[in-house]
């Protein structure tokens, strides 16, 4: 009597398994998925910044943590926290590590 129903029917899907309607993924869906995760930010200059995405705004200004700066693929420096001005950003890619 006291046993509950198996909850595998009612349980909300995990964030990652979220059903995306029509297999579309808008920029804001993407950003929700990568917030707090390791990302690679490529600037128009070709410089890459790898770190954890702390937050960003509508201009694509970005705050990152544990950031590594790569110029021509070579590690050039590290920053604890850093702010990147959005106009320089070419793309943000999710980084698996």
């Amino acid at each position: 009597m006291s046993s509950a129903l198996p909850d595998n029917t009612s349980k909300a899907p995990e964030k990652e398994a979220e059903a995306v309607p029509e297999n579309k993924r808008s920029p804001s869906d993407f950003l929700k998925a990568v917030l707090g995760r390791p990302v690679n930010v490529r600037l128009n200059s070709g410089t890459d910044y790898r770190g954890v995405l702390a937050c960003l705004d509508g201009y694509m200004n970005i705050a990152m943590e544990q950031t590594e700066e790569y110029v021509d693929g070579q590690l050039k420096s590290k920053y604890g926290d850093c702010f990147i001005r959005g106009n320089n950003v070419m793309y943000i890619s999710s980084q698996r590590r």
Binding site: G80, C82, R85
Partner: peptide, 15 residues
């Protein structure tokens, strides 16, 4: 002027 800025980093905090 803001438009020439690429990146700003605050001093390293131990966190």
């Amino acid at each position: 002027r803001g438009d020439i800025i690429v990146l700003v980093s605050p001093p390293l905090r131990t966190s």
